[in-house]
Each structure stands twice: as structure tokens, then as C-alpha cells.
Computed example of a mutant assay.
Amino acid sequence: MTGTESSPEEIAALPDGGVAVVLGTRPEIVKLAGIIRHLGPKARVVHTGQHYDSALSDVFFAELGLPAPDVRFSVGGATRAGQIASALGSLDLLFAQTKPVAVVVQGDTNATVAGALAGNARSIPVVHVEAGLRSFDRNMPEEHNRVVTDHVSDLLCAATDDNVGNLAREGLAGKSVIRTGNTVVEAVLSQLPHPARRERLLADRGLEPDRYALATIHRPENTDDPAALAAILTELNRIPCRVVLPLHPRTASAIERFGLTAHLDGLAVTDPLGPSEFLGLAAHAALLISDSGGVQEECTVLKRPLIVVRRSTERPEAMRDFAVLVAPGPLISKTAGEWLDELPELHTRLARAASPFGDGHASARIVAEIARRFA
């Protein structure tokens, strides 16, 4: 990996326009928190409003100790094209008024591609955090977002060797690509509650370590398909332990729309959890079930096994030791049951496995590179 931590003098040398950090969803807030902290007063946080529910946005800024966004738009609730178009237009006006020295985007959301295109259109260097992920599944909207973003970016911060290789195969190599590790590692380590707090979290919910599963479902491929959603909820009910399900607003709406409310009766349903509480529960779960990309990374730091309920993944690194890819259907409960039967041995093996996503210093490396290149 390249780069060391930037000095305060290097960061202070960044022009007064600062660095625009464009984000729009809960995972982006979590994964960009370290970069925002390292940039300090040079960070200009722009929230597109893709996630506009306070439980998926405001609470994360508060829990992470981040200042409120400098600028906030309201693109949430629109179609994918509508969100990108609205954010792109608003960002273009913003960058015309106050030109930042660089635009930082993360991952593969609609906010990501809008920020990258807006920066590129105004000849502002674009920094893509978590570059080079590929599912090779063109049915995923995120795959298009991440490919477009990589190809218009000026600095590609790739987390792993696999990601670097993906970029090289697309002709993106050389000085524009650096391997940094993934900011998720430091995010997990900094937000994981201390042991006494985790013990209280479990007690408050009547949970015992290794005696429950923690599930999250929110991706459109699962929530917009009534058959898939019904199959997932049915399988969660068949897992032979308590299943805690923090319910994403999109999922809750889909369950009501499709008449699937009765499928929740056997599950421990909660409101969406803040980052610290989610990690605290995940750290002591017997196993995790999720369609989230972030959870695929977090499980490698928490050393917990994960069933990924998706048809494809852009994070094959997690599949090597920590996770399995399972389509909606009987394999969900079958896999969970098999893991529960060998749980002590499985947890012991995972505890010895290293996370493939780095050493927890990705944010410092990225900010150091920004300071060197754009000051």
C-alpha cells in the first residue's frame, strides 16, 4: 500500500475552496467519516439527500461525531435517473459558485456517479474511494455507477489487489491508481462499542452471545420482487435461532405493499440501527444474513460468518473465508443450520483469518495523496 498520513501543514495548504466530499447514503457517511475527519476544516460535505430518513442519515452524522453537511439537496424518492439528474444539476451550480480543489466520492451510489460527473464537467479532479469493484453483473445499477465513476476519476483509491487488477484490465492503471485498503476497517474499529457497552446492548434486547442471527435486507433486487422478498422472510423464520431484523424503510414499505406483514411475526423486528449499535449486535451474532455490500466487508473485521442474499457480488474477497453467496430460497436456512451445528469451530477459524480489506489506515493514505497531488 502507498502513502503515509499527511501533515497538518499539507492539509492546510489545500486551497480555500476545500475538498468537496459528496455523499448521499448511510454507508457513504460511515465510510467517508475518517476522510472527513482527516481533512478537518478543508472538508466541504455535500449531502444529496438520497437517504433522507433521519434514521438513515442524521443519526449517523451525530453518532460519528461529524458536523452537519455544509450543503444538502433533496433528491430522495425520485427514480434512479431522477436522482442522478437532480444531484448533477445542483452540484454543477454549486461547483460553478465555489470551485473545490477536488471532489471525493465513495462506492457506487447515485450520489457517487453524480458527484463524479459534476466534478469532471467542471474540470475538477475526482477522487474515487473504493475504486475497482466489479460484480460483472450488468443487471446491477451499482455496477454501471461504479464503472462510469472509475472512468471519469483522476485518482482511483482501490482497496485490494483484486480491485487494482480490475482497473488494469479496463486500461486504468499507472499513477492514477493507488492501493489504500478499505476505509471500512477503521470505521468498524472506531465505532465498535467497548465490551461493557456491547453487553448492555444485548441485555437490553434480551439477547445472548452466539444465540441469535442478525439480518438486513434492503436491495431493490430483493425488496422490489414480491416472490424474492417472501422467500427471504420465510427462510429467516426457518433459521433455528432467534433472528433480529432491523427493518429498512424500503423493506418495510415493500412488505406492507405486497401483503407480507404476517411473515414478520416470528422475527425480532427493530427500527433501523445506528452504526455503533449494529456493530455491537453483529459482533456477538452467531451469524449474519444480509444483501449489503458494507456488511460483506464488516464481517471480515468482526470475524462473523455471513450469508449474502444476492445473485452476484462485487466483493469476492469476503467470499474466500467469511461469506457465501446465496439466492433467495431454501439455501438460506440450510446454510444457517449447518453453520449453527458447527458454530464454535467456525468462529474459531474465522477469528484466525485476516481481513482482506487492509490495516485500518486507508483514510489517512487517501487524504495524504489528495494533499500531495492537489495542494
Rank of each mutant, 00 (worst) to 15 (best):
F374Y: 15
S355L: 04
T180N: 09
G24N: 10
P246L: 06
V185I: 05
V269G: 08
L207S: 09
D162F: 04
P226W: 13
H151T: 06
D150S: 15
A283L: 01
S135K: 05
V19I: 15
E314V: 00
T335G: 02
K334M: 03
L247A: 11
R372H: 14
D150Y: 07
A282N: 05
L39E: 01
S54Q: 10
R179I: 02
S253H: 12
L229M: 11
P69K: 12
V46F: 08
R315P: 02
D225R: 15
I289F: 03
H128K: 07
L56V: 01
D291N: 15
F136P: 03
R257N: 11
R310D: 00
P344N: 13
L32W: 10
R134D: 03
P220A: 13
A364T: 02
A158F: 08
G165P: 00
L260I: 01
G181R: 09
A159P: 15
N110L: 03
A158H: 08
P226S: 13
S290W: 06
G18Q: 05
A118N: 12
K175W: 02
E186Y: 06
T160H: 04
R238V: 00
T2N: 13
V71T: 14
R304K: 15
V71C: 09
G358D: 00
D137I: 00
R146M: 01
A327F: 04
R205H: 09
D224G: 12
V127Q: 10
E314G: 14
S363N: 10
A231L: 13
S90Y: 01
L56M: 15
A213Q: 13
F136V: 01
D359A: 14
V75E: 10
A131V: 01
D341I: 02
K303V: 01
D58A: 14
A102Q: 11
T180V: 05
R80E: 12
A131Y: 10
L346R: 15
V147F: 05
P67H: 10
L214G: 04
V188A: 04
A351N: 12
A114V: 03
I239Q: 10
G165S: 11
S190V: 00
C157E: 00
G40H: 08
L273V: 07
D210R: 12
R179P: 03
E10I: 00
L66I: 01
P330M: 06
C299G: 04
V104N: 11
